[in-house]
């Protein structure tokens, strides 16, 4: 009897772990956008979370109002978010290049307010019920004792693919290596003939496209869509990026997964209201032990 109970506890733990990894995958995809932009433009793009929301709204509107095929809608949403990200960069952040980091931060907050309120105007204050665009049979394991939803499977698969593709892109292709170079030393990169402005725009484009994907994954699993949908996941993903060491791409992936798993496990085993507090507490503990995050570079102070 006891062993059976222990067995089912273990199974619940496994299924919790899997949903944690799934949420972590979403956080990781969002955190990638944060960390890439931070690495290159040295700014905290607070509006990133709201790009997620815009991406989800685009898919929602296309599928429910226009009856577009959901996968086509996702592609359109990615294109729309890419354009949005580049527009934001061009009009709000580019004029402030070289200004104090705080000024850029406040501008990013302004952009975030703008996107939230614009969305509230365009789509109304009523929260929408997002219909998942992923529709196939859930997978059941261990004789039906663990059921993994189709959203979870797709989320994990998509985030793994994105992480691999992005790692390859950054390390193997020319524009990717240009991104690394710009984040390492902007001045030197420019002297080497790299188009710095173009590279920064490209970074925003990629980050925003990823945000669109993350938005759809997020809303497929947690279907309530409103103008503030992106805010809290955005902050959590930011926490994930910092936890992994901001500026580091593998760090964002690890950080995202850690945050997702801790959030789900904390919610199911400790307290559902305290889940956020637990996530933040873990961040604090990690940063106190390792002040630049898990994979962060050590900062050498020169006199």
């Amino acid at each position: 009897m006891l062993s059976l109970c222990l067995g089912c506890r273990k199974l619940t733990f496994i299924s919790n772990l899997i949903s944690g990894i799934s949420l972590g995958g979403i956080y990781a995809v969002i955190a990638l956008g944060y960390t890439m932009v931070y690495g290159i433009a040295k700014m905290l793009n607070f509006a990133h979370g709201d790009v997620i929301m815009v991406g989800s709204y685009v898919v929602f509107m296309l599928t429910t109002k226009a009856g577009v095929n959901p996968y086509l809608a996702l592609v359109i949403s990615m294109v729309a978010c890419t354009l949005l990200g580049m527009t934001i960069e061009r009009f709000a952040y580019k004029p402030l290049r070289g200004a104090s980091p705080l000024a850029v931060l406040i501008t990013a907050i302004g952009v975030s307010y703008f996107l939230q309120n614009a969305a509230m105007h365009l789509f109304g204050t009523q929260a929408k019920n997002f219909t998942s665009i992923i529709n196939f049979e859930p997978i059941s394991l261990a004789g039906g004792q663990i059921v993994i939803s189709d959203e979870t499977v797709v989320t994990i698969a998509v985030s793994v693919v994105i992480m691999i593709a992005l790692t390859l892109f950054v390390n193997k292709t020319k524009p990717g290596r240009a991104m690394l170079a710009v984040s390492e030393d902007r001045g030197a990169a420019q002297l080497m003939g790299i188009n710095v402005n173009g590279t920064i725009a490209l970074t925003f484009a990629i980050g925003s496209a990823l945000a669109a994907v993350a938005g759809v994954l997020l809303c497929s699993t947690y279907p309530l869509l409103s103008s503030t949908t992106g805010a809290m996941p955005g902050i959590k993903a930011f926490v994930a990026a910092v936890l992994g060491g901001i500026g580091s791409i593998p760090g964002a992936m690890i950080g995202g997964l850690v945050i997702g798993v801790i959030e789900i496990l904390g919610r199911s085993y400790i307290s559902s209201q305290m889940a956020d507090a637990i996530v933040f507490a873990v961040l604090i503990v990690v940063l106190l032990v390792k002040p630049t995050g898990i994979l962060g570079k050590k900062y050498v102070e020169k006199v």
Binding site: L96, A99, A103, I106, T107, I109, G110, Y113, F114, H121
Partner: peptide
């Protein structure tokens, strides 16, 4: 909405 735009414009006008 106006507040958000004012914030962005003020920042660009004073800090860029």
């Amino acid at each position: 909405l106006i507040y958000a735009i004012a914030l962005i414009i003020m920042m660009i006008a004073t800090a860029s």
